[in-house]
Design a protein around this nucleic acid. Structure first.
Lengths: 188, 188
DNA sequence: GGTCGCCTTGTACGTACGTCTTGCGCATTT
DNA sequence: AAATGCGCAAGACGTACGTACAAGGCGACC
């Protein structure tokens, strides 16, 4: 494994352990077992290395949620939430890295555009797994409402699990909450 | 206005404009129009100043959501979401500061305990404004389910508005999404 | 008028950071 | 066998940071 790959691997590890802003070139170099200069040589700058590693790390993270074998029915919906809630503790650092990226995107327009695109994917993905419909037959209206709400629930519940897993809702409590909430919705 | 107050005011401003991690003692001093040493004299350290300012800033932020005059009926629920969505753009920096604090709490156990407490308040507050019941008559079960879900929706939708206000859902789309979602809930 | 606190300042100090320069080993080429 | 070029390391360089220090201003009180 060349130093370039060693650096990328170390960067992902640092991204999860220390976060984007707190990892220094010295952290990266010592974690990879290479010299600081190797970063400049292979990536030009520390930022470029971290960005590439971040892209890989966040991209590969979809797998953490687990596959949605069957979808569209009520059982699948509950199963999705059980997988999600489990992932919040199992892959805690991954979700933290996600949150950190959202925040950092507020000061970086380019990154923000990327996150906006990812958010669009997330919305339609959520709408798909809930309704069970294929990508093509999804109405834009459905994505904008049901997809947005479902995606918001995911990130919102994730934040609660990050700050306090004890008091954060279980999958069943989320379903119960949604049922209770529907009683307070204005008609039509 | 003494230098202490000037520093606190400047710190809040910096907190909103640059964020906790990125504000330096030189930023604070020049924003307040005082010397760097004044920070050490009045607060002991930069961190202590920022923490006190953060506490004040986040505490006063409840006002941004607006008062919930009447509550418990469907119209109030829709009105709440309209106020929230409006606040996401109007008080953008406030919500960013909130998000940053949640994230920073992941590396600071003491802050995390504070945030967990605030989250509990948020949950019961949300349950209260939705159901229209008083604090005392709220069942713990209701807070844990309905309160959690509602709070998660708030932070989740907020995040979508931060990354892309264009594609983020309006209050009406949120309501439509919730209605649509209830059709996919597992029974009982 | 001198003195004693409380504020306030200018600035020096030590540390940590990211990048860049220099040079060394070691293949491969001529 | 000399030369070329790539991969890489060691360390210096300039900068920015948070804090500590010594000194000055300025009221109030003896």
């Amino acid at each position: 494994m060349g130093n370039r790959e060693k650096l990328l691997e170390a960067a992902k590890q640092c991204l999860f352990e220390k976060g984007y802003e707190r990892t220094t070139v010295r952290d990266l170099a010592s974690a990879a077992g290479v010299s600081m200069a190797a970063i400049g040589y292979h990536f030009g700058s520390k930022e470029a290395l971290l960005n590439e590693a971040l892209f890989q790390a966040l991209d590969g993270g979809d797998a953490f949620i687990g596959e949605h074998e069957e979808a569209g029915d009520a059982a699948a919906f509950a199963a999705l939430w059980r997988r999600l809630v489990a992932s919040f503790s199992t892959n805690r650092t991954f979700w933290i890295a996600n949150l950190e990226t959202v925040l950092r995107a507020q000061r970086d327009p380019e990154l923000r555009a990327q996150m906006a695109a990812g958010q669009g994917q997330g919305r339609s993905g959520m709408a798909r797994v809930v309704t069970g419909e294929a990508e093509e037959e999804l109405l834009e209206e459905t994505v904008r409402s049901l997809g947005s709400v479902q995606l918001a629930l995911v990130s919102g519940v994730m934040m609660q699990h990050l700050t306090d897993p004890e008091s954060a809702p279980t999958a069943e409590e989320i379903l119960a909450g949604l049922r209770a909430l529907s009683a307070y919705l204005p008609p039509e």
